[in-house]
Design a protein around this nucleic acid. Structure first.
Lengths: 150, 150
DNA sequence: TCAATTATGAAAATGAATTTCAATTTCATC
DNA sequence: GATGAAATTGAAATTCATTTTCATAATTGA
């Protein structure tokens, strides 16, 4: 079973648990988001979906993401532009981000050594870490080339 | 010369360079902020200042911070609650944050090993890093105790 | 089918950040 | 010290993303 399928099934389980109903529209949004498996702002997701299916409102997209977030099936992140981005959890079990300040591309990575050091630092300060955020901002390979030869 | 004094003098230099005028109110805000040497939201700074001096509006505080930011004399950060916080740069030449999710306390740290690893990761992806953000969220020592014995 | 409850869309409300604008203050020049 | 151009200020208005409201539609269990 793919991670996507698993996430989708967890969504369905949660929906049942809380006595929510199944609607075509919400199902489409959740499905699309999970299958896309990448970052979206609410607006981006809304626009992408609009291309494929008409009659789904911003509210519906917004509320679907909110549910996903509530149920830990989507993660929220903000990359300094005060717009919230969401990504399905199956894609984000643990990773940090490289953010290109030129084209907006987001690359995900994870690094065990960094994590270990983070844990060590927290301990030094008597801190118990339950989450972290690491983002590296700069230029991706492509944009670096562009900037060099304008 | 203390770091604070240096920052203040740089503010005055910038102010002259751009032909801005010196006002008691803005001076008070900038002075207070730099001397405090810690994180503030605009509202927090506004409230703190109100205690010491009346007749300074939110706008004035906001605009003072904006200038400081423009001139790289203050850094902006957002710790996941979608409220922007500012800190004087002299306090932030390079550090990351431990954020207590219980009491909101913010502890600063820096760790050269983590930085080096960040640089390595970026290189792997052909990325040139110009800035980064690392935040560890969790419970500080005090709050951990409280949570244990409620 | 009926009744109860959730889902939906459009519009309104919210909240932080930012801008507007008339009134005030600063400061270089007279 | 007076003048005037330019910056500063405060209060209110605006912006923009996010969130809620409410009337209507769709879903589901009995």
């Amino acid at each position: 079973m793919s991670k996507q399928t698993n996430t989708l099934q967890r969504f369905i389980k949660h929906r049942a648990k809380y006595g929510l109903k199944s609607s075509d529209k919400r199902t489409f949004v959740v499905d699309f988001f999970i299958k896309a498996g990448r970052h979206f702002t609410v607006e981006e997701l809304y626009n992408e979906i609009k291309k494929q299916k008409s009659g789904i409102s911003y509210s519906t997209v917004y509320r679907a993401l909110k549910l996903l977030k509530q149920w830990d099936l989507a993660n929220e992140s903000m990359f300094g532009d005060s717009i919230t981005r969401y990504e399905p959890v199956d894609k984000s079990e643990h990773h940090d981000h490289l953010v290109c300040q030129e084209c907006g591309r987001i690359i995900e990575f994870e690094n065990g050594k960094i994590e270990k050091l983070q844990y060590d630092v927290a301990q030094q300060y008597g801190f118990t870490v339950s989450a972290h955020r690491l983002e590296l901002y700069g230029l991706c390979r492509k944009c670096k080339k562009k900037v060099r030869r304008p």
